[in-house]
Simulated assay, not measured.
Amino acid sequence: MENISQTENQIQCVTNFQDFVSASFHGNINTICWSRKLVGDFSEIVKQLELNENIAELHPNDLLELQLSEQGQLAREILLKDLKTLKDLGASPTLNLIKFYDRDVSYPFFPTDVYSFHVDRSPIPIDTFLCTYYGESTEILPNSQATQKILVPEIRDELKKIYHGTEEDFESFLSENFFDLHYLAKPKAQPIKLGLGNLYRLAIEHPKSKVLPCLHRAPKEKNGQTRLLLIC
Score class of each variant (00 low, 15 high):
Q48P: 02
R156H: 08
R121P: 00
A185F: 13
D41H: 08
F42V: 07
H206V: 02
S92I: 12
S175F: 11
I192C: 12
N198W: 07
T166Y: 13
C214Y: 07
F25L: 03
G165D: 06
F173I: 15
N16M: 04
L86E: 08
N30W: 01
Y163L: 08
H216Y: 11
N30S: 05
I11Q: 07
L196G: 09
I140K: 02
S5D: 07
P60V: 11
R227K: 09
I162A: 06
A56F: 00
P219M: 00
L83D: 03
N16V: 06
Y115H: 15
K210P: 10
F20P: 03
E168M: 05
S43I: 09
I45V: 11
D41P: 06
G195V: 03
L49H: 13
L86T: 13
F178N: 11
L159Q: 03
D41F: 04
L86V: 06
Y115W: 01
P93N: 11
E2L: 05
E2A: 13
Y133I: 05
S92R: 14
K210W: 05
P93Q: 10
I162D: 08
I162Q: 11
Y133N: 12
V114N: 03
R227F: 05
Y101V: 04
S92C: 10
P142G: 04
S106C: 05
L159R: 02
H206E: 15
N30Y: 00
Y163C: 04
A56P: 00
D180V: 08
F20Q: 00
V114D: 07
Q12R: 11
F42Q: 10
Y200E: 09
H26Q: 14
G40S: 07
P125D: 15
P153Y: 06
A146H: 10
A146V: 11
Y163V: 03
R217F: 09
H206F: 12
E8R: 12
G224C: 02
N3D: 11
L151K: 06
P60D: 02
D102Y: 03
T147P: 10
Y200R: 03
N54G: 04
I4L: 15
I55K: 00
P207I: 10
G27K: 02
